[in-house]
């Protein structure tokens, strides 16, 4: 049982290691999704949110890691 729990924990860790990074990525996807739903005629807007949001999240998270 302990081993199974360990395997599931490691599997979850494949996607979520730094909670702040994972939350920020999900938030960017949600905002892009809302934009796609509210403005389906401007699909580039959700694409831009997704692209620049993810790049910003990566950069900012790396910078914050130094402060921690």
């Amino acid at each position: 049982m302990t081993m199974l729990i360990g395997i599931f924990q490691e599997l979850a860790g494949l996607f979520v290691e730094d909670g702040a990074l994972a939350l920020a990525i999900v938030a960017v996807v949600v905002v892009a999704g809302i934009s796609a739903a509210l403005a389906p005629n401007v699909p580039w807007a959700s694409g831009a949110i997704l692209l620049f949001g993810c790049l910003a999240v990566l950069f900012v998270n790396a910078m914050k890691a130094r402060r921690r």
């Binding site: 996607f15 990074l21 994972a22 990525i25 999900v26 996807v29 993810c54 999240v57 998270n61």
Partner: peptide, 12 residues
Amino acid sequence: ILLLLFGMRWLR
């Protein structure tokens, strides 16, 4: 979404 979580974790 899973690839973004997985790939950006590796990249970070």
